[in-house]
C-alpha cells in the first residue's frame, strides 16, 4: 500500500486550497506528474504533444497533456493526494524477489535457504491473487545440457513446495536458465555455491 501522509483534515483542506489557488490560473485538465521511486531515486519522463515535447526529471514537476506543446508546472503533495488518492491507495505491493540456494548437483536446499522458503510462503499468503515466476540456475560444473535440466528440476522443486502450501498452479511459471545466467561470473567447470540458486518473484 502507498504510504499516506498523516496530515490532519484541516491541514489537508488548507493544502488543497493553496494548491488549487496556485494552479487555478492555467490548470490543465489532463496532466502527468513525476514521483520519486520506491528506492528514493527519481527517473525521467518525456511528454509529447502534437507540436512539441517536454522532459520532466524532478519529482513534483508536472506537464500538461492537453496542450499542443506540453507545459511544465509544480504540484504540491496536497494536490497529488487530493487528485490521485484513490489511484495511490489501489497500488499493489511492489513485487518481492527471493533467492534460494542449493547444495552441489541436486535439489537439496542449503539449511539457510530451507528456512527462507517459509518467508516465500508467507509472502505468497499475504498477497491475494499472487502470481510467481520461478527461474532455476546452476553453476558451471558439469555439462551445459545437464545444467539446463538441473535448473528446471530446482525450479520445479520450489514450485512443488509452494503448491503443497495451496497456491493455484496456473499462476506459477517455471523455467531454467541453466548455467547461462550466472550471479557470480566464473570460468566453465567451476563449482560456485552462489550460482546454484532459484530466483523467485512474488507479485
Amino acid at each position: 500500500m502507498a504510504q499516506r501522509s498523516g496530515m490532519h483534515g484541516g491541514n489537508l483542506l488548507l493544502a488543497a486550497l493553496v494548491a488549487g489557488l496556485a494552479v487555478s490560473a492555467c490548470a490543465p485538465k489532463s496532466w502527468v506528474v513525476l514521483l520519486p521511486n520506491e528506492d528514493g531515486s527519481t527517473g525521467r519522463i518525456i511528454v509529447s504533444g502534437p507540436e512539441g515535447q517536454a522532459e520532466v526529471a524532478e519529482a513534483g514537476t508536472a506537464a500538461s497533456l492537453d496542450t499542443a506543446v506540453p507545459e511544465t508546472f509544480d504540484v504540491s503533495r496536497g494536490e497529488i493526494d487530493t487528485t490521485f488518492g484513490d489511484a495511490l491507495q489501489a497500488q499493489p505491493s511492489p513485487p518481492a524477489v527471493f533467492r534460494l540456494y542449493f547444495e552441489l548437483g541436486g535439489t537439496q536446499l542449503t539449511p539457510e535457504s530451507a528456512a527462507l522458503l517459509q518467508d516465500v510462503l508467507n509472502e505468497v499468503g499475504a498477497r491475494p491473487g499472487a502470481d510467481l515466476s520461478i527461474v532455476g540456475h546452476t553453476d558451471t560444473a558439469g555439462a551445459a545440457a545437464d545444467n539446463e535440466a538441473l535448473g528446471l528440476e530446482r525450479a520445479h522443486f520450489v514450485r512443488d513446495r509452494i503448491i503443497a502450501a495451496g497456491l493455484k498452479l496456473d499462476r506459477i511459471s517455471t523455467e531454467s536458465h541453466g548455467e547461462g545466467n550466472l550471479l557470480v561470473p566464473t570460468a566453465d567447470d567451476v563449482s560456485e555455491p552462489r550460482n546454484r540458486r532459484v530466483e523467485i518473484v512474488v507479485r
Binding site: 502527468v32 513525476l34 527519481t42 527517473g43 519522463i45 509529447s48 497533456l65 487528485t83
Partner: peptide, 20 residues
Amino acid sequence: RTTTGTIGVRGTRFLVKVED
C-alpha cells in the same frame, strides 16, 4: 498514451490524469 499526449518512460514512477 492519452487522448492528446504521449509519455515516454525512462525507468520511473508517475501519475496521470485524463479529463475531457
